[in-house]
Design a binder for these strands. Sequence first.
RNA 1: GACCUCGUAGCUCAGCUGGAUAGAGCAACUGCCUUCUAAGCAGUAGGUCACAGGUUCGAAUCCUGUCGGGGUCACCA
Length: 604
Amino acid sequence: MLPIVTILQEATATALNKHFNQTILLSEVLVQETRKEFEGDYTIVIFSLNKYKLGNPAAIAELLGSLLLASCDFIVKYSVVQGFLNLSFHNNFWKKFIIEHQDADINGDFFNSKEGNNKKILVEFCSPNTNKPLHLGHLRNLMLGDSIIRMYRAAGYEAIPCCLYNDRGIAICKSMYAWTKRFNGITPEASPYNGKGDKLIGDCYVAFSRMLEEEIMELMNNQGISKEEAEKIAPSNLAINEMLVKWENNDPEIRALWATMNGWVYEANQKIYEKLNIPFDKYYYESDLYESGRDIAYEALTKGIFTRREDGAIGIDLTPEKLDFKVLVRSNGTTVYMTQDLGTADKKYEDFGAEKSVYVVGNEQEYHFKVLFLILKKLGRTYSDGLFHLSYGMVNLPTGKMKSREGTTVEAEDLIDEVTTTAYENTIELGKVEGMSEEDVQRLSKTLGLGALKYFLLKVDPTKNMLFDPKESVDLHGHTGPFIQYSYTRTASVKREATSRNSQPLKMEDKIEEVIADSEKALVKTLYKYPALLHEAIYSYNPSIIANYAYEVARDYNRFYHDCKILIADKPFLSAARLAISNITGQTLKKCLDLLGIEVPERM
RNA sequence: GACCUCGUAGCUCAGCUGGAUAGAGCAACUGCCUUCUAAGCAGUAGGUCACAGGUUCGAAUCCUGUCGGGGUCACCA
């Protein structure tokens, strides 16, 4: 089924082409929903055709109106207001939609498309370091990545979630060194960590910074040297550099410590992924990949794509692209971050052969990915056109920026626990626990708490920086996840009640006029838009489109619910129609939330 | 310094491929539960769409400039 906008564009172009013997492009025909203060369903903006010099807009609108009325059987009337042609659809059009979709299921054709044709798309997200716990920024990342995966699956792609662990390097050495110095013998099982090894490692990382600061202060005071000089000779800094060298030389002791401490973090993170219900199909580790781009670099050098600079460094001159010379192998023969990414890109393609590959990474790395993709293209990688950096904005706190070294972060796990607790308290307070076991209440609280958190982070345009207000994130009213979940439970409740009353489905012969009155129409029109919005959300890698649409559906439904009695004993056809609308709404809300990774309860 | 990005109600955000009187939520104030769940609905109030020019039938939306916030510009990751 073609989207209605396309149908109207085609009908308009066909009618006018014939009448004026001109070629009007579909894309030049502007079709939009009629504003609610005017009569009509869809509007054609005649001004948009000005460039074809067809004549006075009002006259063209009249003409087009009569042509469309004749050619499109679903149009029942039209009106012209200035240069706007407002088209009213026959109630049958909406009724047909309701009848055809009253049994639609979230796994069915209406809610999913096949446009992906089972093509593979790899989505890398989260990308944690192993030297500290996951924080709020990772949560935004995780939820975006998960939602992208879900949206692509709904569009018929084979979407593969993967996670790259930055498990080596100087940062991990900092935590390791601090642990040996200050925490030796303390394991995640010890108090106050209660099994949370990521927190222990995070504390080590912070401890290292303090230790180093103390040393630098002491050196500066005692030896009267500058801060830069003090940094160079501070024992802790010397020690971690030595550690890094030992690690690279496979020193058994260092490697063992490294493996143990990383293990703590993997375990802790895994628990969080499980809590969030965000699984990965594949994990990559920097420690396996960090030298993998070297061969590519040397090969590119022989092909003349890369060049050797006078100082011996190998890289690529991107000044023609108005970028700089990018070094990929240092003059001492070691590789850089970008080189590793070249190797990783090849490895991913080797593993999955995905035509599309998305990196969900913060916008501070835009330059990095711009250069990376450009180099891969110059290297002639066939997959390079399918690479996309989903660049998302930072999450700020009311108190300012998060800095892990200063301990001003919001840790992911704490936040998840907090929203769950708040949801629990609210559920109790509202007296919604009747007939529920303690276990039910716990499960509901988790569903609602996570719903609130995920929705809060996903409703904002991913490319924009956002402010995280802890109070607002656990709110259950208004433009929130729980509001949408609540709206779903209303549909579920109506459905249960209808089943017990044995309501019959809507049939074609049921009265049209009463079935789609004004009270129902706004909601039906909103429901009708789902496929177009899914397409738009996928096309723009933007789950917030789905989030905001779900809110629109929920709001329209609650208005409808308030204005219309759904289960009316004396008017079975009307009841059937409203029940059908309610059911479609329920599935739409469930599907939208599912695309956002949010579960729905049946009661709340 | 150069480049990128953002600036919409007290706060958080929609709207931005140019279209009709700029929309929500939160916060404030008013109403509405004997009814399919009030985690809801309806209403009041709140705006020079940062500012100044330009493009045109029409600009929150496009262009230029100014101001303000954020980011990037490594042989760091």
